[in-house]
Design a protein around this nucleic acid. Structure first.
Length: 273
DNA sequence: AACGCGCCCTGTCCGC
DNA sequence: TGCGGACAGGGCGCGT
């Protein structure tokens, strides 16, 4: 569910409130969101202080005072919810893991479908994971040149290419569809067929779409909430995603929906080639 | 090696 | 009103 802008909104919301906070007690209600035993997970966090909160791709990183990190991937429906104030737990629907902080606040990982994963990784394990992720699209090293060169090496449909986290980090189905719509490129186009000029446009639109979504605190279709439980405001701004049968905002042609790789793609057959 | 597919799980919505 | 099927923002493991 949550893509880069939603994860970034959560990270920004946790930065100040969690800086310096420490884990007193952890309760695991749904062990299937972990990859180790609940006991081992609890022990890894016990007494640890949060040094810094950051994001890499769609992962939330709580950097701990022992050099390890609590890595949270929200899957489709994961949420991180924080107490409004000490003594008041956040409002949850499907709590999976609950973290009591030393100051009386509670951080809860809530997840209806439980596709999310929580792990505590040492520096080496995290570095190995990090290396497998592609460039951050909002950072300097993601250049038009790099995008174009990387696209040329793949025969996948460009929409599938954009969803592959090893190639570009943090883009999911919504923003892939939106960027392709705005760049005038059909989702089914083979990555290697994208011209230099198209790659330039795609590069710009990926960044614009992500930046604007962050400004609007993410897209809420159903489940996404920020750390205060509030929905994002970006959904009404989507031009193609979820708009099957509606007129194209540019030319009035009907927006089409096609399915490949088990996921919906939306596009305008007149504006996108 | 690169790629596409099925699957993990629960909730919601739509058509009959 | 009830029921079955399709579908949902992600990512992994498998077979080709």
């Amino acid at each position: 569910m949550p893509e880069l802008p939603e994860v970034e909104t959560i990270v920004r919301g946790l930065k100040k409130p969690l800086a310096g906070a420490s884990f007193a007690r952890t309760r695991v209600l749904k062990p299937d969101v972990l990859r180790v035993s609940p006991r081992r997970f609890r022990e890894a966090l016990k007494g640890r202080r949060v040094h810094r909160v950051s994001r890499r791709a769609k992962n939330i990183l709580l950097e701990l005072d022992d050099e390890r990190r609590l890595v949270v991937n929200l899957g489709m429906t994961g949420r991180l919810l924080l107490s409004p104030d000490p003594g008041t737990p956040p409002h949850t629907t499907h709590p999976a893991v609950s973290f009591d902080l030393a100051d009386g606040r509670t951080l809860v990982y809530d997840d209806v479908r439980r596709f999310g994963v929580l792990e505590v990784l040492d520096p080496g394990s995290w570095a190995a994971r990090d290396r497998r992720l592609g460039p951050e699209p909002l950072l300097e090293d993601f250049t038009t040149q790099r995008l174009w060169k990387d696209l040329r090496r793949s025969r996948s449909p460009v929409r599938s290419w954009l969803l592959d986290q090893r190639r570009i980090a943090g883009v999911g189905n919504i923003y892939a569809i939106e960027a392709l719509y705005r760049a005038g490129i059909r989702p089914s186009r083979r990555a290697r067929s994208i011209s230099k000029k198209e790659a330039d446009r795609l590069h710009r639109e990926i960044r614009t779409v992500l930046r604007e979504a962050i400004e609007h605190r993410g897209t809420t279709l159903r489940n996404y909430r920020d750390v205060d439980g509030a929905p994002g405001g970006n959904a009404p701004r989507l031009l193609a995603y979820g708009r099957e049968g509606e007129p194209c905002s540019r030319c009035g042609e009907v927006i089409k929906r096609v399915v490949f790789a088990n996921r919906s793609a939306f596009y305008c057959r007149r504006c996108q080639s």
